[in-house]
Computed example of a mutant assay.
Amino acid sequence: MAMRAKFDIQAEVAALSDLSREELTAQWVRIYRCAPPKGVRRELLIRAAAWHLQAKRLGGFSTETRRMLRSAIDRV
């Protein structure tokens, strides 16, 4: 990955901490198409937005990881 792209992602992730709770909640709704769980901590809203941003830019879970997650869910 180019150094510039890495810096841009890091800057975008760092900027998430400057967002208000309302802005972070709006991001959650945009990403997950539902309201965040009641009482969710601000830190989780930031981490969820950061993960989504990074996954969008760098790629999400590998095929193998998705398979393992599906298998784990099926066992619950």
Rank of each mutant, 00 (worst) to 15 (best):
P37A: 12
A26R: 10
H52V: 01
S20A: 07
V76P: 00
D74P: 00
P37L: 05
A11C: 13
R42L: 14
A50I: 11
I9P: 01
A2Q: 10
L24V: 08
R75E: 09
L69C: 06
T65Y: 02
W28D: 00
L44T: 13
T25Q: 05
A15W: 06
M1E: 11
E43R: 13
A72I: 07
S17T: 14
A50D: 07
G60E: 06
L16D: 12
A49W: 12
Q10V: 07
P36R: 11
Q10I: 13
A55V: 00
A48Y: 08
F7A: 15
R67I: 04
K38G: 05
A14C: 09
A49Y: 03
T63P: 02
T65R: 11
F61Y: 14
S20R: 04
R57C: 08
W28L: 05
I73K: 13
T63A: 12
R4C: 08
S17I: 11
A49R: 10
G60D: 07
M3L: 12
M3K: 12
R70N: 10
R4L: 14
T25Y: 00
M68G: 00
M1F: 09
M1R: 12
R30E: 13
T63K: 13
A26Q: 12
I73L: 13
M1D: 07
A35F: 13
L53D: 02
A5K: 12
D8G: 06
I31V: 05
L24I: 11
L16C: 03
L69R: 09
L53Q: 09
R67Q: 13
T63H: 01
R75K: 13
G59E: 02
R67A: 15
K56I: 02
R66P: 00
E23I: 06
A48D: 06
S71E: 15
L58P: 01
R66D: 11
R42Q: 09
K6I: 12
L69A: 05
R4Y: 09
R41K: 14
K56P: 00
L16K: 08
T25W: 03
L45K: 04
S71T: 03
K6C: 12
R47V: 04
V76A: 04
R57N: 03
V40A: 04
A15C: 10
T25E: 11
R30N: 09
I9Q: 12
R47M: 03
M1V: 10
A11W: 07
M68V: 00
E23M: 05
L24Y: 05
P36G: 07
S17Y: 04
R66K: 14
F7T: 12
I9D: 10
Q27T: 05
A50K: 10
A35W: 08
K38N: 08
Q54F: 08
R41W: 04
Q27F: 00
K56M: 08
A50T: 03
A15V: 06
L53T: 15
L44Q: 05
S20Y: 06
